[in-house]
């Protein structure tokens, strides 16, 4: 009896865990051959107000801009070790392209691409050119970082600015270095405190980083990835003080803490998805790197209208001038020149 109950308990735990992991898989259906079936695999959730939500929102937007062309499904909370089974199910269901949203899925995608050469795969961020059936994408986020840096450099009164990074890699590293260059372009005397939480998702630690920087005198902060929400929350712990945030996700303007967000940029993955659909239509399954930048519509930027008095005038002019220059030509920010040890 006891053994039976113990086994029952274990089964309950396993089923509870599986239920908790969630699934959004739909049964395979016969679809119009004109429809491109897109599957998304993410490590967080579609409403994380960060990295994963940006891709999900982009696919939804692309569905609207290409009516009837995209069938979409997604699976959340997939660690790289678990993502293989989800990806194989999508292959079995006849999906045309499987997007694994994160560089952590690289090995999985490379294996799958070899196993299923007729299916297209995509992952990012990565600037590497993949096999013939793998697309990679790379946000050139030094551009959005540069805009945030201009705003922070011109807003700070203490001349101390906080930068809450997740890890020094990928688009986060490009954003941070672009931010440093943006600050230095408008306020070379400002001290920039760069610190990393060591995690893309641990917003408790990001909050601790921000608290540390605020106590050290920072009055404008920024940060990227999901962890940045914790840092923004720490800024909002000073509701009556002149401590501000510049965001790397426009959704941050519209949450409770948005009254602290002067402006924010976002990735517009809709342009990536539309580009992928066009390439699949042309019979190209991969072998290309797709950049995201202002000139190809991969980025969007918004000021917070509620804080117009803070940016109207010189800040707005400088930001708009920078956006115009990015629209004219990409790759103009030499982010690799930044050395944090010299700040």
């Amino acid at each position: 009896m006891k053994k039976f109950l113990t086994i029952l308990f274990c089964l309950a735990l396993i089923s509870g865990s599986l239920f908790a992991a969630g699934s959004n898989e739909a049964p395979a259906e016969e679809v119009d051959s004109n429809v491109v079936k897109v599957a998304l695999i993410i490590e967080n959730t579609i409403d994380d107000k960060g990295w994963c939500q940006a891709m999900h929102d982009g696919i939804i937007a692309a569905q609207k801009s290409l009516p009837g062309r995209i069938e979409y499904n997604y699976t959340e909370k997939m660690k790289p070790v678990d993502a293989g089974s989800a990806a194989r199910q999508y292959v079995a269901q006849g999906y045309d392209i499987i997007i694994a949203h994160g560089a952590q899925y690289k090995n999985l995608i490379m294996e799958m691409a070899e196993e299923y050469p007729d299916v297209s795969f995509a992952f990012g961020t990565s600037a590497e050119v993949g096999p013939d059936n793998v697309f990679t994408y790379m946000p050139e986020s030094e551009e959005t970082g540069y805009l945030s840096g201009i705003i922070a450099g011109m807003t700070t009164k203490a001349n101390v600015i906080g930068l809450v990074g997740p890890v020094d890699a990928g688009d986060a590293a490009r954003y941070n270095r672009g931010f440093v260059l943006g600050v230095q372009a408008v306020n070379p005397k400002a001290k920039i405190m760069v610190a990393h939480s060591g995690s893309f998702s641990d917003f408790v630690k990001a909050g601790e980083v921000a608290q540390s920087q605020i106590r050290s005198g920072a009055d404008v902060l920024t940060g990227s990835s999901q962890q940045a929400l914790g840092a923004l929350r720490a800024v909002a712990d000073y509701p009556n003080e002149e401590i501000w945030w510049v965001g790397q996700d426009i959704a941050q303007i519209h949450i409770n803490e948005g009254y602290k967000v002067i402006a924010a940029s976002s990735y517009n993955y809709a342009s990536v998805i539309e580009g992928l659909v066009a390439k699949l239509d042309a019979g190209v399954l991969g072998g290309e790197v797709i950049p995201l930048n202002f000139s190809n519509g991969g980025f969007v930027f918004e000021f917070n209208p509620a804080l117009e008095t803070m940016y109207a005038g010189e800040i707005e002019e400088k930001v708009n001038a920078a956006i115009d220059s990015f629209n004219a030509a990409s790759g103009t920010i030499n982010y690799t020149s930044v050395d944090y040890s010299e700040l």
Binding site: M193, V194, A195, E208, V209, S212, Q213, S216, L343
Partner: peptide, 19 residues
């Protein structure tokens, strides 16, 4: 708290070790 302060002060020390 110390490692965060070290990172914030721009001391030339790999952040991975600080974390």
């Amino acid at each position: 708290a110390l490692q965060l302060a070290i990172q914030g002060q721009g001391i030339n020390f790999p952040y991975e070790f600080a974390v």
